[in-house]
Amino acid sequence: MASSVSSKGIAAIVGVGPKLGRSIARKFAHEGYTVAILARDLGRLSRFADEIAREEKAQVFAIRIDCSDSRSIREAFEGVLSLGFVEVLVYNAHQPTSWHPTNLTDIKVEQFEKSLAVSSVGAFHCAQQVLLGMVERGRGTILFTGCSASLSGIPGYSELCCGKFAMRGLSQCLAKEFQPLGVHVAHVIIHGIVGAPARGAIASSSQQRLLAGEQEQQQTGVWAGEVLMDPDGLAQTYWHLHIQDRSAWTQEIDLHPSNQRYI
């Protein structure tokens, strides 16, 4: 890849799917950043890159990554860093888990280890790839995406909770170690279900059925009775964290839908 970085540097978004990751990438592209989007499905990722580049008139690069594989992470970030220096890293990757509770005795060790690898070890590796450059320049932002499982154990969700707990600990350690060196590290806890972006348009009937079915399936535990959260709205928070004044940096923030019922 030829280097074509903007003066603002690269915003690297790890874990880009059709909802939050894509909205965060779009927001940073809209604000003038060259954006690298990373995920396992390169075909879908390339379509997102073309879409965002066209809509925002920005440079967007799709790079495949498997966050459970340290070699894949190193190779992916060789591609990212060939574009220029990384100003922003958003770690939004997660290992998909069932929305239905799973008894601990039914969870396979390989499944548990994969969740830990993606949520925490992958976050560690990705942060390592960019921190040296950020420290050398005395600036940069690293944002981790967490959820309700980052704060409290949930029966039937052991693999999710353990990975997210570890990511939260990593975020706190990095914030305390690197904030004095000019690197802003923050943990974003999303207490809710992320839906498709509203973007001011009326969803098609098929999309409405999909979202309704998704919401019905996910009426479990701490998520019961909630509306879907707009990823474009959430992306605004990631942007505001990045541009915060150094005299008042957020290290952790909780985001809730307005109608949330606590259970």
Rank of each mutant, 00 (worst) to 15 (best):
A2V: 14
S3E: 15
I13N: 06
I13G: 03
V14Y: 03
L20C: 12
L20N: 07
I24C: 06
K27R: 11
H30E: 15
H30S: 15
V35A: 07
A36W: 05
L38Q: 06
L38K: 02
L42C: 08
L42N: 08
R47W: 00
F48S: 12
A53L: 01
E55D: 15
E55S: 11
V60K: 12
S70D: 11
I73K: 04
I73V: 15
R74L: 10
A76K: 04
F77P: 02
G79H: 02
F85W: 12
E87W: 01
E87D: 13
L89T: 06
Y91D: 11
N92H: 05
A93E: 10
H94M: 07
H94P: 00
H94K: 03
H100S: 13
H100K: 13
N103M: 06
D106P: 01
K108W: 01
V109L: 14
E113R: 04
K114E: 13
S115T: 14
A117W: 00
S120K: 05
V121I: 13
V121H: 05
F124R: 11
F124P: 01
H125S: 10
C126M: 08
R139L: 02
R139I: 07
G140S: 08
G140H: 08
T141Q: 03
L143M: 14
F144H: 07
S150Y: 01
G153Q: 09
G156W: 00
S158E: 12
S158D: 07
L160K: 03
C161Y: 01
C161S: 09
C161F: 05
K164T: 13
C173L: 08
F178H: 10
G182Y: 04
V183M: 03
H184W: 02
H184P: 04
A186G: 05
A186F: 00
I189F: 01
I189S: 11
I190M: 14
I190V: 15
G195T: 04
A196Q: 10
A203N: 09
S204E: 05
Q215R: 15
Q215H: 04
Q215P: 01
Q215G: 02
Q218S: 15
G221Q: 11
G225N: 02
M229W: 00
P231T: 04
P231H: 07
Q236A: 12
T237I: 15
Y238I: 09
L241F: 03
Q244Y: 10
R246Q: 10
S247R: 11
S247E: 14
A248E: 07
N259V: 09
Y262N: 14
